[in-house]
């Protein structure tokens, strides 16, 4: 047996570098975020600004990638297996980020609003988005013919477009308890001041890098999973055959 060029795992030199970069930026975010000054309105709780808005925005990016990849898969000219796998990988990472959005938001809401959860348009639409993605991921796990599953999942992913749009504009369309878009407050003269903006921007970069790293690895894992699915039987057969030969060769 010769050595192999293709790594069997999901790591590579490039992704290792990306991972280190993501970890460093994330560490910087945590340090910056936790050392933010106490704000007059929210006390220490405004320190969540370094992670909560970046996580929520990254979640939109993840679903945008899912929808884009699904559309590329659906369009016959660009139909390739990898678009389907990328859509699934990005959606799964997106689901993790959505769960974190809900969790960090809830943890911030408890001391600030006095409750873990309010039925405001932003929170509700985020929750619905989360369930839509869970449904999509469940659909992807249903055993069925590969091409059929890919097509059906790609169609199902399109629902994420209106869901994300409604979620994003929920704070503008309805009067919500949740405050308006954090990025919109970056214009001069708005309430967020320098240190907060800096921490949040570093947070955006960190979460973006973490997302890219996770999605890249989830994608490679999906490729491996698919190969294992397709070749798994061959491998098992070969192993059994080898065992048989070994037994037969024994004196």
């Amino acid at each position: 047996m010769t050595t192999t060029e293709t790594p069997a795992g999901i790591g590579s030199r490039g992704s290792f570098f990306l991972g280190v970069l993501a970890a460093l930026t994330l560490a910087t975010t945590v340090v910056l975020g936790l050392s933010l000054p106490l704000s007059t309105e929210q006390g220490p709780y405004s320190r969540m600004i370094a992670i909560h808005p970046p996580i929520a925005t990254t979640e939109y990016v993840a679903y945008a990638v899912t929808v884009l990849a699904s559309a590329l898969y659906l369009w016959p000219r660009t139909r390739q297996r990898r678009w389907d796998l990328l859509a699934g990988a990005s959606a799964e990472v997106g689901a993790v980020f959505t769960a974190l959005t809900l969790a960090t938001g809830s943890i911030w809401g408890r001391p600030t609003w006095g409750v873990w959860w309010v039925w405001d348009a932003r929170l509700t639409s985020t929750a619905i988005l989360f369930f839509l993605v869970l449904g999509y991921l469940a659909l992807r796990r249903v055993p069925m013919e590969l091409s059929r599953r890919s097509t059906i999942s790609a169609v199902a992913a399109l629902i994420l477009v209106p869901a994300v749009v409604v979620d994003h504009y929920a704070v503008t369309w309805w009067r919500t308890l949740h405050q308006g878009a954090s990025l919109a407050q970056l214009s001069p003269g708005k309430s967020l001041d320098g240190a907060f903006i800096a921490a949040m921007l570093v947070g955006f970069v960190a979460m973006g890098l973490v997302y890219a790293w996770l999605t890249l690895h989830r994608f490679r894992l999906a490729v491996l999973e698919e190969r294992a699915d397709i070749e798994g039987l061959d491998i098992a057969l070969e192993e059994r055959r080898a065992e048989g030969l070994e037994l037969a060769a024994r004196p």
Binding site: F131, L132, G135, Y136, A138, L139, V142, V155
Partner: peptide, 18 residues
């Protein structure tokens, strides 16, 4: 979408209700 799947009874509510 769910028709013809073995898990359609459990999958359809999750897909449709949200």
């Amino acid at each position: 979408l769910a028709a013809g799947l073995r898990v359609r009874e459990t999958l359809l509510p999750l897909l449709l209700l949200p």
